[in-house]
Amino acid sequence: MCADIVIIGGGPVGLWSAIQLKKRDPALDVQIYERYEEYRRSHILKLEHRALMLYSKSVYDLPEAKFVAAVTGDNPAKIAKSAIDGEQVYIRTNDLETALKTYAHDLGINISYEKIDSPEEAEARHPECKNFIAADGAHSTMRKALMGENATKDYPLQYVVEIKYEAAGKARPLTVAENLKVNKYLSSMCFEYTGREKDGKTPVTLRFFVDEKTYKSLPEAGFKNPLGLDNKHIPPELAHDMAAYMQARKEKIGEVYKQDSAKISKLELSLYRAKRFAVQKRGKNWFLAGDAAMGVPYFRSLNAGMIISSQLGLILTRRLLSGKAKIAAYNAVQPLDTAWEFTAAHGKNMALNIYDAFRKAGAKMSWKAQKHRKNRNRKGPGAS
């Protein structure tokens, strides 16, 4: 099979990488391999307009206009200004995936729905190809095979328990003042994210920032094996916080929760980066993209991945650069990209800690204190 560039992983960043390559050099034959034909995640992402523009090649043609309208509701000309203004949009992962697939199809990018188990398998299928991109996620099998088990450096930040559910009709987030008022009654700080209404439903994500003990007391729960709201292993304080915040949304904005749509997962928010973004193996050039290269929390991973992929597209389409020069150039952007993203993540983390301290300082009677007072009242006056 002939291909100029082969990409392993057809998630948002893999597709964006292919699109950037094709826009910069329409003659390139770009092949994507993706394990799943239907994208399996539907959580909310925060897509920054600048991620669509920075280092990106804009041609202002019909496919680009269709894509930008699908994900932002705007047009490419206005996106340039909104990127400078720092605008962003919340979008479901699978909606972004659908828009990117349509865009890739319009550009003539080939997507094969097959699992590729190793770099050697990809190389064997495309012996003439010199450049390969691994965009197969945070637990990248390509990265491990190419660089070993200890190919990344990790920096933990926060522990989070997350509820994703659907609200009937259109829903909005609480205002900053409303959020703070509710948070004063909670033992764990909570932030929320609402997506766009689709088919009469709006996706809502609630993130509870918990301590390590609470986090580890919960059984393993991810998007593949989530917990339900009635799970008996959820600590009482956390269960109270979840119920209280959902009740607050019901009272303040009239939200109607779609029964049995809630899925609870836990995640450790951390920074990590591959020690190298690119290597040469067996005469082939391998480049990491997206979560395979670097992971940052607070909805930054997608945006960072798209920006770095745009940089990679710029490097790979420089025909005067040799393979080794392209690897050196891509590895050279790593310190700058990681420094920028890590600084932003640490700044966000510091702001969260300050907010949490402010919340606790002005907190109302804690749930524990309320429970203790109720118990005393049941026992009668003078009870200890």
Rank of each mutant, 00 (worst) to 15 (best):
M1P: 14
C2W: 13
C2V: 15
A3Q: 07
V6S: 10
I7A: 08
I8W: 06
V13I: 15
W16F: 09
I19D: 11
A27K: 11
D29S: 03
Y33C: 01
Y36L: 08
I44P: 02
H49E: 12
K57N: 13
D61K: 12
F67K: 00
V68E: 05
G73I: 03
A83L: 01
V89T: 15
Y90N: 08
Y90T: 13
L107W: 00
G108N: 01
I109L: 01
E114A: 11
I116W: 01
I116H: 02
P119V: 07
E121W: 08
A122Q: 02
A124H: 10
P127M: 12
C129D: 05
A134Q: 09
S140M: 00
S140Q: 03
T141G: 02
M142P: 03
R143D: 06
K144D: 04
A145K: 13
G148P: 09
T152S: 12
T152D: 04
K153V: 11
P156Q: 05
L157F: 07
Y159L: 00
Y159W: 04
Y165I: 00
Y165N: 06
A168D: 09
P173A: 11
L174Y: 05
V176D: 09
N179M: 14
K181Y: 08
L186C: 06
S188T: 07
C190Q: 06
D199A: 15
L206A: 05
R207N: 12
F208L: 13
F209N: 07
K216D: 12
K216A: 03
P219D: 07
N225M: 03
L229M: 12
L238F: 08
L238P: 06
A243I: 14
Y245A: 09
M246T: 14
E251P: 00
K252W: 08
K252G: 03
K258I: 15
K258D: 07
D260W: 04
D260F: 10
D260P: 02
I264L: 14
I264P: 07
L271P: 00
Y272M: 11
R276S: 15
A278E: 04
K284T: 04
N285V: 03
A289M: 05
A292F: 06
L302F: 04
I307P: 00
I308L: 07
L314W: 02
N331A: 02
P335W: 08
L336A: 05
T338F: 07
H346G: 00
H346M: 05
G347M: 03
G347S: 07
Y355C: 00
A357Q: 05
R359P: 01
W367P: 03
W367M: 11
K368R: 14
Q370P: 05
K371A: 12
H372K: 10
R373W: 14
K374E: 14
R376N: 09
K379D: 14
